[in-house]
Write a protein that binds this DNA or RNA. Structure first.
Lengths: 197, 197
DNA sequence: GTCTTCAGTTAACGGTGTTAAATTGAGTGT
DNA sequence: ACACTCAATTTAACACCGTTAACTGAAGAC
């Protein structure tokens, strides 16, 4: 009767289909609901096929995490090319970080193992994360040229402030409207940036 | 042959045994390795017994989470009774928060759904968490009596800064020694507190 | 002795990540 | 036309998970 159920797809298409499906399930139902079988169903294959593209679920999550850091890296890079003023640069980077977490929360979650997402690979081993760190440190340096150690401290503080507000805003979004959190975020990051001068 | 394998225990002993076992597995192997069967094995019962004490794994995690917030509440309360100076109060509260996360990371993780821990119950619905929020807000108010809205903003900033540094320190502990993170934490929190005056 | 009660067990259901084995089917040599 | 090969894909299995229903066995009541 039926000729071909499944549309023929290239390897690349199938691969990105797996990634896309994983993200969409995570967005709708949370990362703890993402399973290999569910992904396989969605892409109209059986479960073992997924293993032809990713050695394990862990590797799949790691890929999505790195995709997230790469996206962030590209955005930061764009900002560095767009603005010369260090103050403007760091503030815009902060805003981009917020918008990324807001628009793609499921990716932000897997990047930091939040909300039940769990990827075994240590975050700090990710090359893309290192690149992101470097680009922010570079911005901080163009701001106030200090010792490497000082820059690292400053970076840790900036990162913690931004990451802390983002994760808390996610956690409290039922109590405290996101718009309000966003306002506090922007104001706080602005003040952090200003105080650096 | 064998008379009684398992030592007789009271209901309370068994219950706290379940909680203790869950925490100890989480500490050793991470929350994703905590299973009802493993807990049951450790307390020398079969799995369904656990359900006589906790309706679900979720409820068990929620209990541990609330235990964490209660512990924090008691510590904060102790500090409020110990010091009168608001600056000292808030700083000591910050330090206690750090020490708690350092000494009982597995509890801190389940409180905020970090590192693969996943408890469905929304954090902000926890009564103990509300009590913790109130006590810090109270401290902030004794600091600078301002509008409720202002205090809430200040609290969000303090919380985000502290929580952000704690989670990042956990994440980066292989790269950045904990002692170093602790030093930056203390310095940053001290500055935050001072700047409030 | 039988009956009830109850703590505790086993067994099961539907799910998970993962892997080995079986199956399908199309292309090729003769 | 038939057999053979080879790759793609699926089925079946393993050991685990949370959870629940059904069962067991012993103690106490009558």
């Amino acid at each position: 009767m039926e000729i071909i159920e499944r549309k023929p797809r290239s390897r690349e298409q199938t691969r990105s289909g797996i990634v896309k499906t994983a993200k969409s399930i995570a967005r709708r139902e949370g990362w703890q609901a993402v399973s290999i079988r569910k992904i396989a169903d969605a892409i109209e294959y059986s479960a073992p096929i997924v293993y032809e593209y990713f050695d394990s679920k862990d590797v799949l999550l790691d890929e999505i995490r790195n995709e997230g850091f790469r996206h962030l890296y590209q955005e930061y890079d764009r900002i560095l090319k767009l603005y010369r003023d260090p103050e403007k640069r760091l503030y815009e980077i902060s805003v981009v970080q917020w918008e990324f977490a807001r628009q793609q929360p499921e990716i932000y979650q897997v990047m930091y193992n939040l909300a039940g997402a769990y990827c075994t690979m240590p975050v700090c081993r990710s090359e893309m994360m290192q690149a992101v760190s470097d680009i922010v440190c570079q911005t901080l340096f163009s701001f106030i040229p200090k010792s490497k150690e000082s820059i690292k401290r400053l970076y840790f503080q900036w990162w913690a402030l931004s990451h802390g507000m983002i994760t808390l805003a996610m956690l409290l979004k039922d109590e405290q409207p996101v718009e309000q959190s966003e306002q506090i975020y922007c104001e706080t990051m602005r003040r952090f940036v200003r105080q650096l001068s």
